[in-house]
Design a binder for these strands. Structure first.
Length: 421
RNA sequence: GUGAGUGUAGCUCAAUUGGUCAGAGCACUGGACUGUGGCUCCAGGGGUUGUGGGUUCGAGUCCCAUCACUCACCCCA
């Protein structure tokens, strides 16, 4: 084979593409119900944008970005996530001048240079939303409700919602210091990864999978006990809003987010059917990012759904819808072939999925093909039919044939398909 | 970046201790009294056994390298 796709990317083929279309359409429908509008941002941005938003010391920035110099020597990066670009666009176009809140959704490919595994690709797709200009805790709850509604409508169940608050710039540093203090006492007992985390990102030690670390971390200080009054109020109001909306959730104080820009509310929707990469969707609040990017102080919150992971779950339970021609012409002889050729065109303009076999194959072979592709109706046309101005209409499921005159053809077909739904 | 497993036709897999082993099923194409599908039967196309070296009289089968895929770690959607 001369060419293959590169590592960690994949072709999405029919009929799976129908599943994607369904999921994307459902997302559009649900999100617009909640007042979200689509925004499309470029896949390429200046590298600096992602470094500043995601965080200099995160794995994404340190070793996972597709970064290169363009012909003018500028450092560009293929977006590893969606929020940074949306925030940039929000500021660049002064969308804060529009009546708040502004709500956006986006869908498209993201790129991260990682080792592929189940639920993880180098080019993957996210569908995400962002809300700008609201700091009310109800917004966070509403966002989770929308996410749950979307996932349910798409056909998923057995998912769990986990929430947490990671505080703000006034209370998180205090917690961080206390945690470091606690970890310091036993740092030599931690696994080698955690020793590294201890100095780089101590919060990460909390969700280590190594049993000895887990055991040690059990008695570590909990972020929720260190929240400032404002953050505590926010988190409590957030939870009571979730209850009002009837959403079942679990507070997970160990849940840590990978991106630096998060404040206060964070959440994750996970499935146990996904393997190690079990998050289908995740998000949180980022009240400082817009300001850090040079915009006016603007609270914001959002989430992103991992499309491949969602589709993987869906494939286990849904049979994939496929699309077949509604009407297939079978022609015998050159003259009939021409008539059929024009009629296919005519029917398509009438909104019917019509097709014919242009291989000049035998009748048997044309019939076989019509059957294989699942066409419910076959129209047979030969010398005899042309002479008399009729078609043989064959209902493939019932295996019944009848003649239809050329004039009543379109009306008849439309009736036939309406009757079937 | 680390570790483990796998790599034979489009797909799922066979091939005794290395010696007619390059096959089957499905799929695809064609045919079975020449204008008709689905069942059945027959036939056909399609692989330099991921790639490159090595060991051997001889390797799909052993060794090394490399690439790809899979899963896990790391990290994350």
């Amino acid at each position: 084979m001369k060419y293959r796709s590169i590592k960690g990317v994949q072709d999405i083929l029919p009929p799976e593409t129908f599943l994607w279309q369904f999921v994307e359409q459902t997302a559009r429908d649900v999100f617009s119900l909640y007042g979200f509008k689509e925004i499309r941002t470029p896949i390429l941005e200046f590298t600096e944008l992602f470094i500043r938003s995601i965080g200099e010391t995160t794995d994404i920035v340190e070793k996972e970005m597709y970064t290169f110099s363009d012909r003018a020597g500028r450092s560009l990066t293929m977006r590893p996530e969606g929020t940074a670009s949306v925030v940039r666009a929000y500021i660049q176009h002064s969308l804060n001048q529009l009546p708040p809140p502004q709500k956006f959704y986006y869908m498209g490919p993201m790129f991260r240079y990682e080792r592929p595994q189940k639920g993880r690709l180098r080019q993957f797709h996210q569908t995400g939303v962002e809300v700008f200009g609201l700091d009310a805790p109800e917004v966070d709850a509403e966002l989770i409700e929308m996410l749950v509604v979307f996932l349910e409508r798409v056909g998923l169940d057995g998912l769990s919602v986990e929430v947490n608050s990671i505080g703000c710039s006034s209370c998180r540093p205090g917690y961080r210091d206390r945690l470091i203090e606690y970890l310091n006492k036993g740092v030599s007992d931690l696994c080698s990864d955690c020793q590294r985390r201890y100095s780089q990102n101590p919060l990460r030690v909390l969700d280590c999978k190594v049993p000895t670390c887990k055991e040690y971390v059990k008695d570590a200080p909990v972020i929720l006990d260190f929240l400032c009054e404002d953050c505590k109020d926010h988190f409590n109001a957030f939870q009571s809003a979730l209850k009002k909306l009837g959403i079942t959730y679990r507070v997970n104080p160990e849940m840590v987010r990978g991106l630096d820009y998060y404040t206060r509310t964070t959440f994750e929707v996970t499935s146990s059917a996904l393997g190690a990469q079990n998050a289908v969707a995740a998000g949180g609040r980022y009240d400082r990012l817009v300001e850090e990017f040079g915009g006016p102080p603007t609270p914001a919150v959002g989430f992103a759904v991992g499309m491949e992971r969602l589709i993987a779950l869906l494939k286990e339970k849904t049979q994939m819808p496929d699309q077949c021609p509604q009407v297939t012409f079978v022609s015998i002889g050159d003259e009939a072939r021409e008539v059929a050729f024009q009629l296919v065109s005519r029917l398509r303009k009438e909104g019917l999925r019509a097709d014919m076999d242009l291989r000049s194959a035998s009748v048997k072979s044309q019939m076989r093909r019509a059957d294989k592709v699942g066409s419910p109706v076959v129209l047979i046309i030969g010398e005899e039919e042309i002479k008399r101005g009729v078609f043989k209409f064959k209902d493939m499921k019932a295996s019944e044939e009848r003649e239809i005159s050329r004039d009543e053809l379109i009306g008849f077909l439309k009736d036939f398909f309406n009757r079937d739904g």
